[in-house]
């Protein structure tokens, strides 16, 4: 579990203030806020890429350290809003890259890495694409592949930065359902930023909201979900 306590986050001046925030295993979180309010900065701070201006972050009760690349890559995985595909790179090869933290010094792939990648592809239901090139599949499929890569990386915390931004409604729903399933079955802690509030509210357990009017992050629990009021807080 990650706990953020009395933190001030930002580069020089605090962008966000967080009195209290928890990321628990087995839960799906949404992060909402207008553009430029510091969603990415928040994620970078949690993984230790940016130092906190004030306060502390604990992981499983211990203060989180500005971790080395190698260790960090076994704790956090990321999915960005768009993976455009890379020439000559096959889907399975791409998913295998998620196994990089576990590979030997010279990058030799073991049976275990291959199995983990296949399983990830199966989990997002795109195993049939494994030998396709990442450039020739559809946008929705590519986003699935990117999620499969994060799953193959097998980290306790998965952050997705607007993973549904470039997708149609059907695929947006599909991705969120997939994440819901993943969180439950694998006991992961997943944080999704999105502007698709409607879909987000249907799938996540908790929402962190950076309101337009202030810099203090608010935590909204599922029982308090109400679309209109959240839109009001976030964007007006």
């Amino acid at each position: 579990m990650i706990e953020v306590r009395n933190a001030k986050i930002g580069y020089v001046n605090p962008l966000i203030q967080i009195p209290q925030l928890n990321l628990r295993k087995g839960e799906l979180y949404g992060l909402v806020g207008a553009n430029g309010k510091g969603k990415s900065t928040f994620m970078k701070s949690v993984i230790g890429e940016i130092d906190l201006l004030e306060g502390e972050i604990l992981m499983d009760g211990l203060p989180i350290q500005p971790t080395l690349d190698q260790r960090r890559s076994k704790l956090f995985s990321f999915v960005s809003s768009r993976f455009a595909g890379i020439p000559h790179l096959r889907v399975l090869e791409y998913v295998l890259l998620g196994r990089t933290p576990y590979l030997g010094r010279f990058g030799q792939v073991t049976e275990k890495d291959r199995d983990a990648s296949i399983l990830a592809l199966e989990a997002v239901d795109i195993l049939h694409l494994q030998n396709k090139f990442t450039e020739e599949i559809s946008d929705g499929e590519r986003q699935m592949v990117a999620i499969a890569r994060a799953m193959a990386q097998d980290t306790p915390y998965v952050f997705l930065d607007e993973p549904t931004a470039f997708l149609d409604y059907k695929n947006k729903r599909k991705i969120m359902e997939l994440l819901q399933q993943y969180v439950r079955s694998e006991e992961k802690s997943v944080l999704v930023t999105s502007h698709d509030l409607e879909i987000l509210l249907q799938s996540v357990d908790t929402i962190f909201c950076i309101p337009e009017s202030s810099t203090t992050m608010r935590t909204i629990l599922k029982k308090d979900f109400e679309l209109e009021s959240i839109i009001q807080q976030t964007f007006h």
């Binding site: 690349d69 190698q70 995985s77 933290p101």
Partner: peptide
Amino acid sequence: EASLLGIN
């Protein structure tokens, strides 16, 4: 991305 995958 490489850095997030643990590459220095």
